[in-house]
Amino acid sequence: MEEIQKIETQSISLSGKFKAVTELTKARLNLSVVYSAMAGYLLGANAISGLTMLYLGIGGFLVVGAANGFNQIIERDRDLLMKRTMNRPLPTGRLSVLEAMIACTIMAFVGLYLLFLINPLTVGFGAFALFMYVLVYTPLKAVGPIAVFVGALPGAIPALLGWVAATNDFDIEPGVLFAMQFLWQFAHFWAIGWIADEEYKKAGYVLLPSRERDTRTATQIVLYTLFTIPVSLLPFFGITGSLSLSWVAALIILAAGIFFLIKAIKLFKTREIKDARALMFASIIYLPVVQLVYVIDKFI
């Protein structure tokens, strides 16, 4: 089997290899991370630097892409057991482990170097996120639900990263951006975990907080959604330094939060996969909407 995969890997064209590396980075998901980083940058910047934004965008994309790639290298055997991941570049043999390692290492070093060109804090947080995601979160996924908490730490870095790229300073403002994205991830990831629970278990992953699609898990989803909403509104109360919100922006964010919460409560009531999917889409809408409102409110 390994010899067949090797022959298939060698026969793939250069363009096919490039496409496989792009898939390794989870490019579409990666762009949402860059979006959060750019929002954080615009919120923190007094004067916008196109060069800094370029370094942040490309550097952030490469570091996240490397993290996603290293994750797939480590999980390649488990990925083969799940329909949602069995067609990734490594399980299909479109990339060898060595090729993936080389690509991810280059992306990591180039990405971190670009973040270093911005300032020391930016590269520090970028390196922390890469380390936590690859060497702590990824191994813990096979241990149990604790992985979700640990994974939320690097997952909450992007907006914070953008702020420190703009200011070279860590204070309450990036702390609030971090806290909001940290709390948001639980409902988001557990909705995905609810949908893919059977698939995850085939690969040996048990990631829902109670380990089952039950009331305990649904309760925690509702609670973390509830926690996310007031944290998202903290800038309205004038206690978050230079990060502030007008009452109009606060009302829009509150409305988005209520929509998000309604989806979480619906899942609590029904415990059906279709409602977990609705919650997942609501979470995907919520975070970028809140970040966009923050940015627009600053500049109008």
Rank of each mutant, 00 (worst) to 15 (best):
I7L: 14
Q10C: 07
S11D: 15
S11R: 14
G16L: 08
F18W: 15
V21E: 08
E23C: 00
T25F: 11
T25S: 12
L31F: 14
S36G: 09
A37N: 09
M38E: 12
G40R: 01
G44Y: 07
G44T: 02
I48S: 12
S49K: 01
M53R: 02
Y55V: 08
G57Y: 08
F61C: 10
L62T: 05
V63F: 03
V64M: 11
G65V: 01
G65C: 09
A67Y: 02
A67M: 07
F70Q: 03
N71F: 01
N71E: 07
Q72C: 06
Q72V: 00
I74A: 00
I74Y: 15
E75L: 00
D77V: 08
R78L: 01
D79W: 11
K83I: 09
R84C: 00
T85P: 03
R88H: 00
R88S: 01
P91W: 06
P91V: 06
T92I: 04
V97M: 02
M101K: 01
C104T: 08
I106W: 04
M107T: 07
M107C: 04
G111I: 08
L114Y: 07
F116S: 12
N119P: 03
N119C: 04
P120F: 10
T122E: 06
Y133I: 10
L135E: 01
V136E: 04
Y137P: 01
K141R: 04
K141D: 02
A142R: 08
V143W: 10
I146G: 08
G151Q: 05
G155A: 10
A156V: 03
A159Q: 09
V164S: 00
A165F: 00
D169P: 00
F170H: 14
F170A: 12
F170Y: 14
L177M: 13
L177R: 10
Q181M: 12
Q181L: 15
L183W: 13
Q185V: 02
F189V: 00
F189A: 01
F189H: 08
W190L: 06
W194L: 05
W194V: 06
W194G: 04
K201T: 06
K202C: 02
A203E: 08
G204E: 07
R211W: 05
R213P: 04
D214P: 10
R216T: 14
Q220M: 14
Y224S: 04
T225S: 09
L226G: 07
V231Y: 12
F237G: 08
T240L: 05
S242T: 06
L243H: 10
S246T: 15
W247E: 15
V248R: 08
A249W: 04
I252T: 11
I253V: 01
L254M: 13
L254F: 11
G257M: 04
A264I: 07
K266L: 14
L267M: 09
K269R: 15
T270Q: 08
R271A: 08
E272S: 10
E272F: 02
I273E: 15
I273D: 13
K274N: 04
A276Y: 09
A276P: 11
A278P: 05
L279R: 06
A282T: 14
S283H: 07
S283P: 09
I284F: 15
Y286I: 07
V290Q: 04
Q291W: 15
Y294E: 13
I300V: 13
I300P: 10
